[in-house]
Write a protein that binds this DNA or RNA. Structure first.
Lengths: 209, 209
DNA sequence: TAATGTGAATTATTTCACAGCA
DNA sequence: TGCTGTGAAATAATTCACATTA
């Protein structure tokens, strides 16, 4: 066990391991070595072992890791051992795609509320969830939802974040391509699709020349 | 000027600077200091200067940076000074959202081809682009398109990537939450929405306790 | 004077190599 | 014997501090 600060990069890899392990579990694989798991998710075996070592001893020397046990331990570390309710703000193209996206369920996330500003959308049902006006974001505290996905245009993103912060939201996954101010206690993770894409031509020109 | 290897993180920040600078340009701001630019995009001023220094001298001591000049230089570094044509594979929820997303245009990207496997979609027009069957991916080489966005389910992602690689595609932005094999010369950037989200509960529990 | 550009110091992360255990 | 767990070494990235320049 290692009580030094846990690297951010290690945290970022834990969900990758978790997904891989859940898949292996479904395939009926009960035991796996760091080498095999690493191959499965494209991480070096020593990186896998080092990552796990920050949280204690997970495996058995000479044998490997018990897949089910590992799933449980990583889920616990990431607080994904209980269903995490989220609010989705913005039901445009991207918001709708996110709502329809099935990839969140393996981590026990559940979209429990949807907000939009468009009166045409407010009141309609989507996957059994009634779309609410953004003015109702302030009620999130009472509903014990402290995670939110922001899928609104850049121009309205800061306003939405301010409302979410006021409503006691502690974690935000932001898709708007802009910097958002929030108190330090609120964790914002930005997904900036266009900027990620914008790196590609640089790398492929390197490969060519 | 510094001929050491340019950090990956520097490359990842260049599109952020570029977007900020283009916005400032529109606001009629012609000159900016590393401090102000940094505040605008949430990067430290010394980080801004260090990032630029890898590519030479961009500014004027005591004065700052010429915004237009900087836009041109960063665009050139990232190879975004010419329109980059892309193919989009997968016109499901996410693919449609990506197609409708306006955020790519500031970087001069253009979706020039769309592929799907669904016969209902093939042949329909989307934003003036006719959806083609995935079997036609192999023709991309002739059409000089060497960038692609993959927005298909994990189960078909590797097959699509294999086809793209065969067609001479050099860069891929992948949304499928899985590891994809490809030759080293092909650059794959993965956007793993669910895994990014899966880190949030860990961080917010830290903030609480 | 006000800001850039950059070596040097610090911090973070990855990689290695191997002791130790089942 | 085979694989884990982990200090130590190597590498990468960030931060600092300041000489330099318009």
């Amino acid at each position: 066990m290692d009580f030094r600060k846990i690297p951010n990069e290690t945290i970022r890899r834990l969900p990758i391991y978790l997904r891989g392990l859940k898949l292996l579990c479904k395939q009926g694989i009960n035991n796996i070595s760091s080498l095999k798991l690493g191959e499965f998710v494209d991480v070096n075996s020593w990186q896998v072992r080092k990552d796990f070592s920050y949280f204690g001893s997970f495996g058995t020397p000479g044998v490997g890791y018990d897949v089910t046990k590992l799933v449980r331990r990583i889920s616990k570390i990431l607080k994904l051992d209980v269903v995490q309710k989220m609010a989705l703000v913005g039901l445009g193209n991207l918001g709708s795609a996110i709502h329809a996206y099935g990839g969140f369920s393996i981590y026990e996330f559940e979209i429990a509320a949807i907000f939009d500003i468009d009166p045409e959308k407010v009141g309609t049902k989507n996957n059994n969830i009634v779309v609410e006006n953004v003015s109702r974001i302030k009620l999130l505290k009472k509903r014990k939802i402290d995670l939110s996905i922001v899928a609104v245009p850049s121009s309205s993103a800061q306003g939405v974040v301010d409302a979410l912060v006021k409503a006691g939201v502690k974690g935000i996954l932001n898709f708007a391509p802009c910097y958002l101010k929030a108190p330090k206690k609120v964790k914002i993770i930005n997904i900036d699709i266009a900027s990620d894409l914008a790196c590609l031509p640089y790398y492929i020109s390197k490969a060519r020349g």
